[in-house]
Design a protein around this nucleic acid. Sequence first.
RNA 1: GCGGACGUGGCGAAAUGGUAGACGCAACGGACUUAAAAUCCGUUGAGGGAGACCUCGUGCGGGUUCGAGUCCCGCCGUCCGCACCA
Length: 878
Amino acid sequence: MNIERYNARVAEARWQRIWDERGIFATRNDDPRPKYYVLEMFPYPSGRIHIGHVRNYTMGDVVARYKRAKGFNVLHPMGWDAFGMPAENAAMANKVHPREWTYANIDAMKAQLRLMGLSLDWDREIATCDPAYYKHQQSMFLDFLAAGLVERRLSKVNWDPVDMTVLANEQVIDGRGWRSGALVEQRELTQWFFKITDYAEELLTAIDGLDRWPEKVRIMQRNWIGRSEGLLFSFALDRATTPNGEDSLDVFTTRHDTLFGAKFLALSPDHPLAAAAAKKDPALTGFISDCRRTGTAQEAIDKADKLGFDTGIRAVHPFDPTWKLPVYVANFILMDYGTGAIFGCPAHDQRDLDFANKYGLGNTPVVCPEGQDPSTFVITDIAYDGEGRMINSRFLDGMTIPQAQEEVARRLETKMRGNRPVGQRQVQYRLRDWGISRQRYWGCPIPIIHCPNCGAVPVPVRDLPVTLPDDVSFDRPGNPLDHHPTWKHVVCPQCGSAARRETDTMDTFVDSSWYFARFSDPWITDAPTDRAAVDSWLPVDQYIGGIEHAILHLLYSRFFTRAMKATGHIGMDEPFAGLFTQGMVVHETYRKADGTFASPSDVQVTSDGETRRVTLIATGEPIEIGPVEKMSKSKRNTVDPNEIVEAFGADTARWFMLSDSPPERDVIWTEEGVKGASRFVQRIWRFTAEVAALPRAAQAQHGKLGPKATEIRRIAHRALAAYSADIEKLRFNVGIAQVYDLVNRLQAELESARGDDRKSPDPETGAALFEAAELLVQLIAPVMPHLAEACWEALGHASLVATTPWPEPDPALLVEETITLPVQVNGKKRADVTVPRQAGKAEVEAAVLALDAVKRALDGKLPTKVIVVPHRIVNVVA
RNA sequence: GCGGACGUGGCGAAAUGGUAGACGCAACGGACUUAAAAUCCGUUGAGGGAGACCUCGUGCGGGUUCGAGUCCCGCCGUCCGCACCA
């Protein structure tokens, strides 16, 4: 029999067209079946899809297709995170308008995505740069403003001098802009902030409920929020020493137990008291500006010495009015954590110790480790931050750290200075409010008008959206909206006087903080969400994306969902019930003799026995194989999804993406692996065609099937059960191994049924193989949907496998009457024993002890114990 | 510094405390073919043995257990995140 090779290119186009024509992936909100919302993080329209997108969307698509077959009403939408700086950079470089550039990219990428055969509901496609989308973002901004969740304040900001914009703290990596890589400067600007810190505690505690999130991400979020409990208290200052008669200084500490080990106080260089003191002391002014210079450079922070400047101010110890402490300005104190001032206890904090040693301030240990003699406990270069008992601490002596903390807190809370207590317990967070103002054109305009009389006035809702002007120039750096001749000149909606439009746009992280909600009903025009739709679809059941969004995007989305709830746009707190972070696609690097890199598509890999050799196709030049690395333009180790689809088909790419590595781990893209997947495509096609041609008995009469047919059915149904469980758990690589194994076994059954003379199997076996082939096709359908349709058709079906319910394994086939157990003697495997499934312990034991191999292993010794783990293993102990 | 993950054949990897290495890749041997491609069959952790089999083996050292890749303690190594957070 001559079976034509499966032509992926022709078949894939055909089935994509058929799916399209029948509209089978369009999702209805009024579908009564249980919902399932699967979402992959939407892409930035950079121009071409990356192989990493292929991995991401394949995973989502497998889940979507599987859940659809399982009877769920599946929402699987796609959109575009379409605002952002690359569009402006392109505008500057190529004189193309950001809108044109963006939409051209969207068109190109959409065409690429379509080639992947993803079961997406394109009717719900959204782009965040569409006024129909950002209109609602503006209205929610105003709602948040009204609800007190937005604030405008003068703030020191991270200024990226290359991109000429403000960056969130999270966008500053090692002191450099996350996109430009430029050294970030500090500037003071008036900025809009979302008050995410109002939700710090809730965002933290709710992490406990995110039980389908990776533990890694949950920990990262916890650390980012950075809760710590401590004591806020004030030192009295010796007014004779302060610049303007200031009489107290607030500090925050988590180690109030060490108060009797205090040797100094330290202020941030940005602290108001430091500024006041600097006005009277030029040397201090110089010191402070030195601190600012080293402040942002990345390595400087690691290696910078602890530097301080004695202000001459003296503070009074809260438990001893005669005990005076020097107040320094120190370069390692952060203004935006706590109060921007600390007390230093050198014996029990390494930074304080470094500082004290440098300035000769000494140290007094106040916590002595258990078992150590306090009189010999001395601190020199290494601070002690472990547990122990209090020493040298007057009324605290002998207490544990928690006891001492409690005692100090209690005393300072009850001690009054003036009409307020000296201290109070406080919770501090590292999390800071989210500054969203960006001095860019290609973003969502902030709907505010600045009026000289009325201040910052919201744009009336009837005037939304505030749209971006089209006629902008990118000839000079800075914000084109600000340069625009007319756009910002408006009248105040309240008093009618000449006013100025806010020219800042929103951080693009705002755009991506609610798109998942918009997909629930992207058509509604008078509100961001339809409450019935959004509350029925959300939370997203399975969200899939890269680990790089573990903090920012996910935390912002969690905040935004709460803010939307507070303003009536959604009915829940958490947007993503299940989260999966997939690994990257990595590739070998190829380095030419001249040190430059060669692209995988320009080289040929050959293997002569032991060693793999790589040569440049064009010249035959030998190439050095470098380490496997993240794909990047600079290393040229990228592969183009289009080329892969062209050469092998989307199904092959999809299959390979999931087959080689666990999905959370990086997968190495190899030409050999892709070819292996491609071979398997042909193998399934051939097997299915062969089975379709077999004579087969009519269905049913399973009850009296012969052993051969029963075994075939058993193989198939077991694979079905195991595979389904693997897909449920997103263990795609293991599931795929099941499929390989299934085909191997079925092929072997087919060959053995044919016998040496290549005769056709009997009709009963043919029917069993046919059923097995049907199951096989259904199993592969989520991963290789086009091939599955083609095979399904070859098996004689007029229906689409994409709309066929997921098969259920026959429970009777999952158990056998006899089972084979491994037998161990003293923990080493010596034999197998086959016993009836229902065999009791005694029966199994007798069978095992009768085995020759067991007798031999026992070597005449008597067994002292026989452990029978039912259906698992037997261990004979002698 | 703090936090986390990981360490299994030549490679990617499997393995509810229960037969370590499923499955794939690569490699080797063979079949088919004038030949190649494609396909199919076999071998493939290390060592020993003609063979049935035996010994060793999951980074290192201990421990718990009838039984440990898996659990506990202590090291070593690699990767990731955060980082002067009081």
